[in-house]
Design a binder for these strands. Structure first.
Lengths: 236, 236
DNA sequence: GTATTTATTTTTGTATACTATTTTCTGCAA
DNA sequence: TTGCAGAAAATAGTATACAAAAATAAATAC
């Protein structure tokens, strides 16, 4: 039986369960509610979201393709644990792509977009001060927003993927529950973009990412929690 | 019933059917045996490979994630037809990443690797002269080889993906059955890398990719063939 | 008490069954 | 013919059933 129908005013419409589940798991991982190494049993997840393992399986496959979960044969899925080597590669590729993003953005950014970015940074600031779990996600989304504004969907997708994986890396190697993106640095980037100062924007972004890479070299913390209770916060 | 077992001398070992199917479909697309827009019905493919639709579905999902096939709800899978805009984005991102590959490679390439590259180009040349369907694939694999030698697995994966998608673009917008990678240009790149001439290597690679982009602006050709017969060549 | 087998349970991998949607076919009317 | 129902067939979406493997628990030997 499928409970995934609801009336949204006009028509009864089937909401794509797999998509909501994908978003939920993704968010749970990025916000570090689910942490590297956590098991992701198919039936548990299926029960919580009210779908069969078939759907769970396809979503896990997708997340695997994006590098967010590891998938060992006959042993199921776990939240990915990038090695240090992988971590370096991820940061390196990310820097390379984001460098290009800034390069293009300096030439095409509009005042409306500058405003949008400033608003976003303000939201980051708010989340950070009240220690919301959103703060990690919002910091990442700043970079994703930049990539989308640069007007290349392919690059934007890769940046999105890499930024997400950086959350994992910070969860593993960085200090706990830190976005490690200084909000002030984000503001500097916006300012440079606004002035059209490509050299400055370029330098700040590169320094920013270098700093983030640096900070990802600390102790990891163990944990032993119940996936069921964590998922409660993420089920629709 | 599953026929996917065989004895490889020591032990009876199950060869992962989904992986061979993935490889087969991928190759068929890259070599342009399956062309943009071709339908990929789940049951037909499943029959040919002797697996259920479950497996087919997961493989199609994976290929979709890599941008090689389009997936419309309730209407099945087709070989992807990138729009012109997507095509530009793909080439742009590819250039950006390959630029970085060359940058890193100049500093770390070994004589053994130079030899490996030269051998590869020789194979390209051979395939090209006898008009083998491999020639398209080999031309792409040259770029993938470079990316792998650069020592960043993440970048290598992205380059792999983008090079594959370029095959689609050429099939759609380029002249039919052309790799559009001049073998001579590949040789020039290797030579520059060997000399450690970063400026030259950089310039040649960029010119090479610019040329490829340029050439991807011609007429498309229609077609009407039987997927069954095409697949015969790709079934294990 | 520890270690090593063996049995039990859990969890994943794959095929199949069923449902829903889309496409194709067929008949009838304009 | 051409256009439009409606029926039939084909195809995709999802759940379930069953097989295979791994993890866990129990039992026996040392």
């Amino acid at each position: 039986m499928n409970e995934q129908t609801l009336t949204t005013g006009k028509k009864r419409q089937r909401l794509p369960s797999s998509n909501t589940m994908y978003e939920a798991l993704r968010r749970a991982i990025i916000e570090q509610a689910l942490r590297p190494g956590d098991k992701l049993p198919e039936d548990v997840i299926g029960d919580r979201f009210g779908v069969s393992r078939t759907i769970v399986r396809s979503v896990l496959g997708r997340l695997h393709g994006e590098g967010l979960i590891d998938l060992k044969p006959n042993r199921g899925a776990t939240v990915a644990q990038p090695t240090l080597e992988q971590a370096y590669d991820i940061f390196e590729t990310r820097r390379s792509l984001e460098r290009d993003v800034v390069r293009r953005l300096v030439e095409r950014i509009t005042p409306a977009e500058v405003k949008q970015l400033k608003d976003h940074v303000a939201r980051e600031e708010a989340a950070r001060t009240q220690d919301s779990p959103d703060s990690i996600r919002l910091a990442g989304e700043f970079h994703i927003l930049l990539a989308e504004m640069a007007g290349n969907a392919v690059t934007a997708r890769y940046v999105n993927e890499l930024v997400s994986r950086c959350s994992l890396i910070l969860a593993l190697y960085g200090r706990p529950h830190s976005s490690d993106c200084a909000v002030s640095e984000h503001l500097e980037i916006v300012a440079a973009l606004q002035k059209g100062d490509s050299e400055k924007a370029f330098a700040v972004m590169d320094h920013h990412l270098e700093a983030v890479t640096e900070r990802a070299l600390l102790t990891s913390s163990n944990h032993q929690r119940d996936i069921r209770s964590i998922l409660d916060d993420y089920v629709k």
